[in-house]
């Protein structure tokens, strides 16, 4: 990691994630506008807010599934969306993206397991192909992870034969197998049947409470948000409206917008 101190004298290395005046536009639709925010190492943040407020876009930018329209993003002191060429910033190329992306893992709303591989392969393929682990080593680690997510019996199963909750737990194991420093959770229980939500949430609570991961979580489940986060950020129209510890945001929000939103979600 080479953070260039000359380039930004105010940069503090204790930021794991740093958004600097980030803008993201899809055509005419401005999703994020001059967004500044930082996340400390091992901090657990939950992003809440109405749909379309840009929460998921933030995760997708961090996973390099989208590119910023303006501003810069840093991960662990390194530019994510751009790289330096001489003293200019240019959009990052694939080589640069692959290096910085190594620190980030993501769990998707729709699980997105690979249907052409069984459960074990889903978990071991990337460690073998990307990290260069031996297949034995990767399988051993995968079995430990499957044990942790409570699916040791399903290593040979096909993802399509699993319930949504089981698929999501495999997807969590798959993300963890790459040993990310940052874990992005994108509405991970929204596509699950109600009776399967609790299992996945309690698994994520355990993972979050181990405290060695930086977690960024987008969710509509406020109890879950309260349990796993150190900080809650309320978004609206691509801007942070209010932020603070969960106890504060959920029981005594300052902004009217936050109150309205919480009232609307908690009523259901």
């Amino acid at each position: 990691m080479k953070a260039d101190p000359k380039a930004d004298p105010t940069a503090e290395p204790q930021y794991m994630i740093r958004f600097d005046k980030v803008g993201k536009r899809y055509g005419d639709h401005q999703v994020l506008r001059d967004l500044d925010f930082t996340v400390r190492p091992r901090e657990r943040c939950t992003l809440i807010g109405p749909s379309g407020s840009g929460k998921t876009t933030i995760l997708r930018l961090l996973m390099t599934l989208e590119r910023v329209t303006s501003g810069t993003i840093e991960v662990d002191g390194e530019l994510l969306s751009h790289m330096r060429r001489g003293d200019r910033l240019v959009p990052a190329d694939e080589k640069h993206l692959r290096r910085v992306r190594r620190k980030v893992g993501m769990v998707f709303q729709q699980f997105n397991l690979f249907p052409n591989m069984n459960v074990l392969r889903n978990i071991t393929e990337a460690p073998v192909r990307v990290l260069g682990r031996s297949r034995e080593e990767a399988e051993q680690r995968a079995m430990e992870l499957l044990e942790m997510v409570g699916l040791s019996g399903k290593a040979d199963a096909h993802p399509g034969r699993l319930s949504g909750g089981q698929q999501q737990r495999v997807a969590i194991a798959r993300a963890l197998a790459m040993e990310p420093e940052i874990l992005l959770l994108d509405e991970v229980t929204s596509a699950l049947d109600p009776e399967l939500v609790a299992g996945v949430q309690s698994l994520l609570r355990d993972i979050a409470s181990e405290g060695n991961l930086t977690i960024l979580c987008v969710t509509h489940e406020m109890n879950f948000a309260r349990d796993i986060s150190d900080r809650v950020l309320m978004f609206d129209h691509g801007q942070i409206v209010e932020e603070g510890p969960p106890e504060k945001i959920f029981s005594d929000p300052v902004e009217q917008r936050t109150r309205d939103f919480l009232q609307a979600v908690l009523q259901t």
Binding site: E94, R98, M106, N112, F114, A175
Partner: peptide, 16 residues
């Protein structure tokens, strides 16, 4: 498209 995105999230190269 989600399959491609999941593969990016696992840091596979474009060829992989």
């Amino acid at each position: 498209r989600a399959q491609r995105e999941a593969a990016i999230a696992l840091n596979f190269s474009p060829y992989q």
